[in-house]
Design a protein around this nucleic acid. Structure first.
Length: 476
DNA sequence: ATGTGC
């Protein structure tokens, strides 16, 4: 994208003035190099989002943004139900409540290095990964509904997790007002054997080491010590969320027409929040959120089991579990007045600053951990929500490195075997059922995650706390 | 993201 197309507000803030049907401006947070690397489509999509009814403030773009279905991935948009605001399946994303969790272990990197090969093999056996992966868990109809209503809380009740985890998960591990009865039989059938599985694409489970600390006080509060090992899981709501997204996308095309909405792009299909379809989507989406929260809790349990086999005394504690494909009801200050808004974050992470009442007591003074998954082999970051994020982006930040290259282009440039060998030579063990998947996820196919998080920090969205380097990667 | 593809 040519930066000259944008109004530069400061080094990391760019604006597109409202023109035509745009109701609000679009605001992009990125440095000039990231802007230059962004596809023109990102500006076009962010501007299209700005035309939707009931949008409040601006259509926001995070520094890792790239072109998505309708809404950009790395997009944030808040809608007011009292101003005709809408909810959009494409504004949440297909993988509903896809997110990241990081668990601390207190293990020193050297201890893990000694058993690295065997640990990688054990994790690969314990964590079903890949397209259509199925787990050891099969749910009947009653258990499916209980899972969709209870989320991670349900998983803990079943013995696949620990009660202490729950306060470290958004919504206390359970999305309220979930409606399993709004989830289609087909979506439930697809999920029947998929609980506790990783899936494919950019999903992974990594053993990582804390390689750099930027904010020692926050790192201490988060339990992140230099040289210690953590487990990070990136996964979502698997087949169920995807099926719900697909079904409601179609329904919303019809609903938008019925509501008389003129859309600049068919992919922006949406429904008024107050409409029948809107309410039904929100109920189903919250059920899918619970599916994702339960799934990450179960995967965390599997990882704990493996680590305890190698290190019987290990205490694996959840630092935080946060989604980056969501639509949430939140209260935000808009021009000095609190308003209840439906905040869409698609490829964007909630980033509550210090003092937010929804944070657990142990984290409240510091702020919310913001977990940023980098690409395989490069590193990930833990940030903390900045006090200014509320006013800058409805308390949101980036979610990852962001793709710089299509999956197809990546498979032309690299082979999976070559990537696995190169990473092994650098001491990073990759285990994956799909060498094509590994090629698609090659580190070179992603933007520089360090530049992305630095831009987020300079823009006042979130501050860097620690950088995590990969040791073992179980890849879908 | 996805029992990857209208």
């Amino acid at each position: 994208m040519d930066p000259a197309r944008l109004t530069k507000l400061d080094e990391v803030t760019w604006r597109i003035e409202p023109t035509g049907a745009m109701r609000v401006p679009a605001i992009l947070y990125a440095d000039e190099a990231l802007i230059r690397d962004m596809d023109d489509k990102v500006a076009e999509q962010a501007s299209n989002v700005a035309t939707l009814p009931g949008i409040v403030g601006a259509s926001y773009v995070m520094p890792d943004a790239h072109w998505g279905y309708g809404f950009p991935i790395g997009g944030v948009a808040a809608f007011d139900p009292e101003q005709g605001g809408v909810v959009s399946a494409g504004g949440v994303g297909f993988d509903i409540s896809c997110g990241v969790r990081t668990m601390t272990t207190g293990l020193a990197r050297a201890e893990v290095e000694r058993v690295k090969d065997a640990l990688a093999d054990s994790l690969a056996r314990a964590i079903p990964a890949g397209v259509g992966s199925e787990g050891a868990i099969t749910l009947d109809a009653a258990a499916m509904d209980a899972m969709l209503a209870g989320g991670a809380r349900w998983a803990v009740e079943q013995g696949w997790g620990e009660a202490a985890d729950l306060e470290r998960i958004e919504e206390g591990g359970c999305a309220a007002e979930a409606r399993p009865d709004f989830v289609s039989a087909r979506a439930k059938e697809r999920q029947r054997r998929e609980m506790g599985t990783l899936g494919s694409g950019n999903h992974y489970l990594e053993i990582q080491a804390v390689e750099e600390v930027f904010d020692p006080a926050a790192a201490r509060a988060f339990g992140l010590a230099p040289g210690e090992v953590v487990v990070t899981i990136h996964c979502g709501s698997r087949g169920l969320g995807h099926q719900i997204g697909t079904e409601f996308l179609k329904e919303m095309v019809v609903a938008a027409e019925a509501a008389g909405l003129v859309l600049p792009d068919r992919e922006l299909a949406c429904a008024p929040i107050a409409s029948e379809v809107g309410r039904r989507y929100l109920g189903a989406m919250r059920a899918a959120t619970n599916c994702a929260l339960a799934n990450r809790e179960i995967l965390g349990h599997f990882a704990r089991r493996v680590l305890r086999h190698f290190f019987p005394q290990v205490e694996v504690r959840l630092l935080f579990d946060v989604s980056h494909n969501t639509c949430k009801v939140e209260t935000h200050q808009v021009e000095g007045r609190p308003r209840t808004l439906f905040v869409h974050r698609k490829g964007a992470t909630r980033a509550f600053g210090p003092g937010h009442p929804s944070l657990p007591a142990a984290l409240r003074a510091v702020g919310q951990p913001v977990l940023i998954g980098g690409s395989m082999g490069t590193g990930s970051y833990v940030l903390v929500g900045a006090p200014e994020s509320e006013a800058r982006s409805f308390a949101s930040a980036c979610h990852g490195a962001g793709r710089a290259m299509s999956r197809h282009a990546a498979t032309r440039q690299w082979s999976g075997r070559q990537i696995v060998d190169e990473l092994a030579a650098r001491g990073v063990l990759v285990r994956s059922p799909s060498m094509r998947g590994v090629a698609e996820e090659a580190p070179g196919a992603y933007k520089d995650v360090g530049a992305v998080v630095l831009a987020a920090e300079r823009a006042g969205l979130a501050r860097r706390v620690a950088r995590l380097g990969p040791v073992i990667c179980i890849k879908g």
